[in-house]
Design a protein around this nucleic acid. Structure first.
Lengths: 352, 352
DNA sequence: TCAGCTTGCTAACTCGATTTAGCAAGCGGC
DNA sequence: GCCGCTTGCTAAATCGAGTTAGCAAGCTGA
């Protein structure tokens, strides 16, 4: 794009000094280089009058810092589910005067390689490697060439990269506590997976961790999980079918749906047989998808902290960039972001 | 980011030629500058062996083309509603070897100005200025300094910028046609706005245009719109209340909900009084939000072509960039992208 | 043999900013 | 007056790539 811009050379000429002097003044180094107040004033004034803004490409080429970050993910920006992750990252970046390049791989290795290359070609200061669903990832070699952070992902193998993930175990504990606090002691069923840990595919990290937390708290209260219904995928249809099957066998008092879309399906199945939420059956879930507040009654759910995840990832990445500049090795730490309970209308005391 | 990269100078040295020669060869200008086949071969081989990739910052500084585009919107990337717009844009850009900077303004003028500046500082080749909801926008002055395109927006005043928008009028026609084709001739009610055009706020562009198309086709078939229910916002709660009120007065045969979230609410209200979709009341709607295929029965809806909108915007922007490079004035055209009907299960012939 | 043309490359400059070494002028002390 | 130090700036080089003018060598025709 070629719209005319004011160059530093023009500012220098306007102020009647060399480009070097102008550069040093605007970089805040006037004192250090013993430039007089009057020259400094002239430069600052000229820059203001001419509305000078540095060309970021030029600065980047000279300094090796482009003031841009890369955000590479499978489908975060485009899946309609985790937009707040991007939002959090965008805001954290903006606060520091940085811009974000977005790239989506759809999980394809070739696309991923091309994107990482394109970002490195553009000299990004660092890269956030994000996953739509919490999972363990194979860290691409190209990613460790410079500062990078995993977002909503943990490395499959030992890696120098730090991770930022939701605290899913604690979320499971929270969900169980909500039911216990409402008075539920039996008839608690899982929709989506369980009741044993081995009923969850190990790659479904969120499921494993949610169930871990749920089991821990219920066991601690000597409450048994009455049953679990495995779903091959966590969409409304699967929640509907699982709940239909459950209702053929028994009358549940509470459902822990492993995500909100499963809960949508559970609501539909309960409605089909005339059971009311929450007077007949309480429902608690995870994610806080917008649909949670569209269904009636509104769903109590433990929220994925997308915004905070994205924001934290940028913070951690910036720390890694600083570390890299100082020649310090990467931190390789896992940061867990807590998941708040969104209390709505789907949980009540068990009926008699 | 400072990981070691191979420079053109290193390729030249490896091939035993000048940097100029190496540059000309890799730019495909060997023939034009009469460089021998053997020299050309040596350069190409050296570049391959050394895995040379040009530094995009350097190329950008020298050529004035950064091979990046800006995407500025209110809340498109982060609202969870229009992710496919970004996806379409990302894919169109990737096909051309370009990358996308994303920035969100939340409709704040200061943020908007800062973002446009940041993108210009980084020498973006052009900018897509997008809106989450179809609307008329005040085009920021900074935007017309170089190639730019409006996406899901039209300019409030005459502007040199082209627009890419969904064809909402034709979408309204499609929706009406679906009902006519199912046999509906009366008892057709609108949920969200209407029945007259003046019942829609003029700034709710999609509403005005959808209603225009609906009215046109129904009038052409001599079918009256039985009634319309204005909603201050188009969320499920509003659809629920409007439909509840409607059901207190009359028994509708078909509902045209002005978007899918209103339809969610309408479904809930119909369920409350034991009316079945579609046997008792057909429902058609707009947008094709994911929830359309979660509710039961699945909703027939006229889809917003987010992916195609985003893709088209990049295409149009690239044409504008070429035009700008040739010194040709911007096109200033409006491109309407058609909205396909997603036929599901919510429309049937009227009952007796 | 000489002049003009062709071939095949290179030196130098450019893009816009930053960085570093160093120079000139002035001052103070011996 | 001379030398060393301080002040206040600048020239030159750098970052990595692209662009343009031009030079040297060789060939051909008169």
């Amino acid at each position: 794009m070629s719209p005319r811009r004011v160059t530093l050379a023009e500012v220098a000429e306007h102020a009647g000094v060399s480009r070097t002097t102008a550069s040093l003044v605007l970089a805040g180094r006037a004192r250090e280089l013993r430039i007089s107040q009057s020259v400094e004033q002239r430069v600052v004034e000229a820059a203001r009058e001419l509305a000078y803004r540095p060309n970021a490409m030029s600065v980047g080429l000279r300094t090796g810092m482009s003031r841009t970050l890369g955000f590479v993910s499978d489908t975060v920006a485009t899946s309609r589910l985790a937009g707040d992750m991007i939002k959090g990252a965008l805001e954290a970046a903006r606060e520091q005067g940085l811009m974000l390049f977005i790239g989506e791989t759809e999980g394809e290795a070739d696309l991923e390689r091309g994107l990482l290359q394109a970002m490195h070609d553009r000299q990004v200061d660092g890269i956030i490697f994000a996953s739509m669903f919490t999972r363990a990832v194979k860290v691409p070699a190209a990613l460790t060439a410079g500062p990078a952070v995993l977002l909503n992902a943990v490395p499959k193998r030992t890696s120098p990269l730090s991770s930022v993930v939701p605290d899913e175990v604690e979320a499971g504990r929270s969900a169980a506590r909500v039911l216990l606090e409402a008075g539920h002691r039996d008839g608690i069923h899982l929709i989506g997976a369980g009741p044993r840990l081995r009923d969850v595919p190990p790659e479904a990290l969120a499921g494993v961790q949610r169930l871990t937390g749920i089991s821990e708290v219920l066991a601690g209260a000597r409450v048994r999980i009455a049953g679990g219904h495995v779903c091959v995928d966590w969409q409304p249809e699967h929640g509907y079918e699982a709940t239909r099957q459950l209702l053929e066998d028994t009358r549940p008092r509470a459902l822990i749906c492993l995500n909100d879309r499963l809960a949508v399906g559970a609501y539909q199945a309960l409605d089909d047989v005339g059971l009311k939420v929450p007077s007949d059956v309480s429902v608690i879930s995870f994610d806080d998808h917008p649909v949670a507040s569209w269904i009636r009654p509104k769903l109590t759910t433990v929220a994925l902290p997308h915004y905070d995840l994205g924001h934290k990832a940028v913070e951690v990445l910036l720390a890694e960039i600083d570390r890299n500049r100082e020649g310090t090795p990467p931190r390789g730490e896992t940061y867990r972001v807590s998941m708040p309970v969104r209390t709505r209308d789907s949980v009540a005391a068990p009926d008699a």
